[in-house]
Lab assay of single mutants.
Amino acid sequence: MKVMIRKTATGHSAYVAKKDLEELIVEMENPALWGGKVTLANGWQLELPAMAADTPLPITVEARKL
């Protein structure tokens, strides 16, 4: 699914347009965010693609819901 990742004042957030859902990312498998699992505030887990740590945000990526 397409997910937009952006930086907020409190960390990172994910927006899933198909579900009209925006949630804070509360847990990251990798400190650089990319190439691992993230957990959203509502409990969803997404697998993000591997990208460079300095990838500019906001960005829309293809993520997989676990």
Rank of each mutant, 00 (worst) to 15 (best):
L48S: 01
K7T: 06
A63F: 07
L57G: 03
M28S: 13
P31R: 07
A53P: 13
P56M: 11
M51T: 01
P49S: 06
A9R: 10
L33V: 07
L24A: 14
S13H: 09
G11Y: 06
P58Q: 04
E23H: 13
D20N: 11
V16Q: 03
K7N: 06
K19F: 15
P49Y: 06
W44P: 02
K37P: 04
K65E: 11
A53C: 08
A63V: 14
L24I: 13
E29V: 06
K18S: 15
K19Q: 15
A14D: 01
P49T: 04
G43A: 01
K2P: 09
T10Q: 14
R64M: 12
Q45T: 13
A14V: 15
V38I: 14
L33F: 06
I59Q: 10
M4N: 09
E22Y: 10
A41F: 05
L40C: 05
M4A: 07
L66G: 05
H12T: 07
D20M: 12
V38L: 05
Q45A: 09
K37G: 05
V3W: 01
N30A: 08
H12K: 02
L24T: 13
V16Y: 14
T8S: 10
I25A: 01
Y15D: 01
A52V: 07
A53V: 11
Y15A: 07
A17G: 10
L21Q: 11
T55G: 02
M4Q: 14
W44T: 05
P31G: 11
A52F: 06
M28P: 00
A14N: 01
E47K: 10
W44S: 00
D20S: 09
T10V: 12
L48K: 00
P56L: 11
R6G: 06
A52L: 08
E23S: 15
V3Q: 00
D20F: 11
D20A: 11
M4H: 08
I25R: 00
M28C: 11
G11M: 03
M28F: 12
K65Y: 15
Y15L: 10
N30L: 09
T60G: 03
R6L: 11
T55F: 04
V3E: 03
K2Q: 14
A41E: 08
A14T: 05
D20Q: 12
P49V: 04
V61P: 00
P49E: 06
K2C: 13
L57S: 01
T8H: 09
I5N: 03
V26T: 11
K65N: 11
V26F: 05
T10W: 13
I25D: 01
L66M: 12
A50V: 12
I25G: 01
H12L: 13
M1G: 03
K18R: 13
G35L: 02
T60N: 06
E47F: 13
A52D: 13
N42V: 04
K65Q: 14
W34T: 02
E62G: 07
T39H: 06
L48T: 01
L57N: 02
K7S: 08
E29Q: 09
W44R: 00
K65F: 15
T60M: 12
I25N: 02
Q45L: 13
A14L: 14
L21T: 10
G36Q: 02
M28G: 01
T8W: 06
E22C: 12
L66W: 11
G35I: 03
W44N: 03
E27H: 13
E27D: 13
G36W: 04
P58K: 05
I5D: 01
K65V: 15
I25E: 00
K37M: 12
K7Y: 08
V38D: 01
G11I: 02
L46Y: 07
D20V: 07
E23T: 13
P58F: 07
E23L: 15
Q45W: 08
L24V: 13
L24Y: 09
K2A: 11
P49C: 06
E47M: 14
R6E: 04
V61D: 02
L21S: 08
L57Y: 08
L24P: 13
D54A: 07
A14Q: 02
I25S: 01
W34D: 00
G35S: 03
A9V: 10
V16C: 14
D54W: 07
A50P: 13
A14M: 13
H12M: 11
K18M: 14
Q45G: 03
E22R: 07
A50C: 10
V16A: 05
T8I: 09
A50Q: 12
K18C: 15
P31C: 08
A14S: 01
L21K: 10
Q45D: 06
S13P: 02
E22H: 12
I5V: 07
V38W: 03
P31F: 07
L24S: 11
T8R: 07
L48H: 01
W44M: 08
W34F: 09
T60E: 14
K65P: 12
L33K: 01
E22P: 05
K19T: 14
L46H: 04
N42T: 03
G36A: 05
T60K: 04
P58A: 02
L21A: 08
Q45C: 10
T55R: 03
M4S: 12
A32E: 14
G11P: 02
P31Q: 11
T10E: 12
G43F: 04
V16N: 07
V16M: 13
V38S: 04
A52I: 05
A41N: 08
S13Y: 15
R64K: 14
G43H: 04
P31L: 09
I25C: 04
P58N: 04
A17H: 14
K19G: 14
P56Q: 11
I5W: 03
W34H: 03
A14Y: 11
D54Y: 06
A63P: 01
E47G: 06
E47V: 14
L33A: 03
R64V: 13
A52M: 08
L33Y: 02
W44G: 00
K7Q: 10
V61Y: 00
E27Q: 12
E29M: 06
R6N: 11
L57F: 13
T55P: 06
D54M: 06
P31D: 11
L66H: 07
A53Y: 10
R64A: 09
G43C: 04
A41I: 05
L66A: 09
M1N: 04
P56I: 12
Q45M: 12
E23C: 13
L57T: 05
K2D: 10
T60I: 13
P49I: 05
A53T: 10
L21W: 14
A50S: 11
K7A: 10
P31I: 07
I59F: 09
G36E: 02
I5P: 00
L66Q: 05
T39V: 11
L48Q: 00
Y15F: 11
M1E: 07
G43I: 01
R64Q: 13
D54G: 10
A63L: 08
E29D: 10
G35D: 04
T10M: 13
A14H: 04
V38M: 05
T10S: 13
M28Y: 12
M4Y: 08
V16P: 01
L66V: 14
P31K: 11
T55K: 03
V61W: 01
V26S: 05
M51N: 05
M51R: 06
L57W: 07
L40D: 03
K18D: 15
E47Q: 13
A17F: 15
